[in-house]
Amino acid sequence: MIRLTVNGQAHELDVPSYRTLLDCLRYDLGLTGSKEGCGVGVCGACTVLLDGKMISSCIALAVFADGREVTTVEGLAEDERLHPVQQAFMDAGGFQCGICTPGQVVAAKALLDAIPHPSEAEIKEWMLGNLCRCTGYYKIVESIQAAAGQARA
């Protein structure tokens, strides 16, 4: 039995030892926003925050998160209002197919929490582990810059 707080909601779950955190979120909790891409921690489609820090949920065991707080893409918007990062990705064309987007916006949110006004180099270092095959990344950088500007306003 593990205890997880996901997006502010507490859960008690009986999961097999081999269950990854990603599978736990997707299948045990029905939170399918986080995606499995590469399955080896490289692509970032499964990025979630564990106690506020971004990790790859595809290579974390669910038991590893026992007693901790998980934030997924589903937890970013507040009362129907999109998080500024989410809005910026829409406005600036920060996604196309959208499969990497949950991971991108979770990572970008964590970035702006840590560095509210990041430089381009800081954005690129932080987002290094979130692959996107559609955009060529230019508009992801622009989206994050736009979100940072909005947060400043």
Binding site: G41, K53, M54, S56, A60, W126, L128, G129
Partner: peptide
């Protein structure tokens, strides 16, 4: 080492 996500773990 790798990416920040990996370094967190």
């Amino acid at each position: 080492v790798g990416t920040i996500r990996i370094r967190h773990m």
